[in-house]
Nucleic acid binder design. Structure first.
Lengths: 204, 204
DNA sequence: TGTACATCAGTGAACGCGCGTTCACTGATGTAC
DNA sequence: TGTACATCAGTGAACGCGCGTTCACTGATGTAC
């Protein structure tokens, strides 16, 4: 790991240390000094690469949004094979991301960081949101106009339920006693919701 | 406010100061010292009433759960006039609570506090959850067994969507640009979900 | 009603701690010739 | 290939700060007689 006076790739090493700390102790339990210590570097060295603690967290979140958007895009797959299947895959991708990248997820959604304070962060966050909204828009085309809710509302519903499932049932707290896995819970919830939209047959 | 050497009701005054601080700066931005300062008292005085910072937050959350459970119970109203109407009212009550008692809500759901570390807190939290689950169970009786999901799953779905709407669309961040109010969003989402359960007619 | 006294809520000084941030510096790296 | 030198990533000491928590204390309150 240590290879002399110069670290080599301190910037990214700090991001990864921050990630591990956030996943372990929550986004508020993370401190700049600890991240520096984790990569065997003086706290002052951090300032060669980041303007301060906030910018380091913002970079963690930014990288998270990049991965997130790519994952969603991959799951969506241009709406194939069907709009419905693509939409469901996108919902599953949300949960898979939260599961596989807890540090990123926490930095993005639980750190209290102001997305709009960092222009490039706001940009990539919007890009991620757009994937889901596009999937919802394509899906909504299968509905007759009278019963068609706005696509942005459908994507907001799915986003909200997914986020709620993560926060309440994938973290330890507080509804931890649920007999269902988060994945099953979300799958079933989205299924019922899509049936309510008239996109799935009335019974299983 | 200040009425001599003895405060009179310092314990509750501290709870309310904590509440205001949490609502203003988030549950992590709250410090014991600031709460003490807010009620014109030395930080050390806090220890006459609470074992420390954590216990103060736990008490805030506990009082929040008491109010929350009462609000849910009131909305449920024993399942009247119909199971469906009572269930929908309970969902609305969730959001109304988050809106009216932001400090309590944050202490309960965003402070990272371990509910199970405080027995009386765990008890009243369970009581609140039970209201929603009871409403869901009553609702599920209207469904034919083959298409009836477990009541605990239905209540988990509604809880998750409600919580997601609060976190994503009632806080400033990050989907703040939604053209819908949180209330409308949740109302519509629950409506679609209930239709999917077969509890509402196929179209509006 | 008046005095003596026990109770205990809040004081104020002190502590050790780790934080984020700054600064002048040093020494490894890599380029120019 | 070898030397001189500019660059700049990381050092280490220092700062001021506010935190949570402790302790011996003080003085207001309220009860017993």
């Amino acid at each position: 790991m240590k290879q002399g006076y110069h670290h080599g790739n301190l910037r990214q090493a700090l991001v990864e240390a921050a990630l591990a700390l956030i996943a372990e102790k929550g986004p508020q339990g993370f401190t700049l000094s600890e991240a520096a210590k984790a990569v065997d570097v003086t706290p002052a060295a951090v300032y060669r690469h980041f303007a301060g603690r906030d910018q380091l967290i913002a970079e963690v979140a930014r990288q998270g949004y990049v991965i997130f958007a790519a994952l969603m895009e991959f799951a969506y797959d241009g709406g194939k094979p069907t709009a419905l299947a693509a939409f469901e895959a996108t919902g599953r991708a949300y949960l898979a991301f939260a599961r596989k990248y807890p540090g990123h997820y926490m930095a993005m959604f639980e750190s209290g960081l102001n997305v709009n304070a960092w222009p490039d962060l706001a940009l990539v966050a919007q890009k991620a949101r757009d994937v889901l909204e596009r999937a919802a828009a394509q899906l909504a085309q299968n509905l007759d106009p009278p019963r068609r809710p706005p696509a942005s509302m459908v994507s907001a519903h799915i986003w909200a339920m997914s986020h709620g499932v993560v926060e309440l049932f994938m973290r330890g707290q507080p509804g931890a006693k649920s007999p269902f896995t988060p994945e099953d819970l979300l799958e079933a919830g989205i299924g019922i919701y899509l049936r309510g939209l008239g996109l799935l047959p009335p019974d299983r």
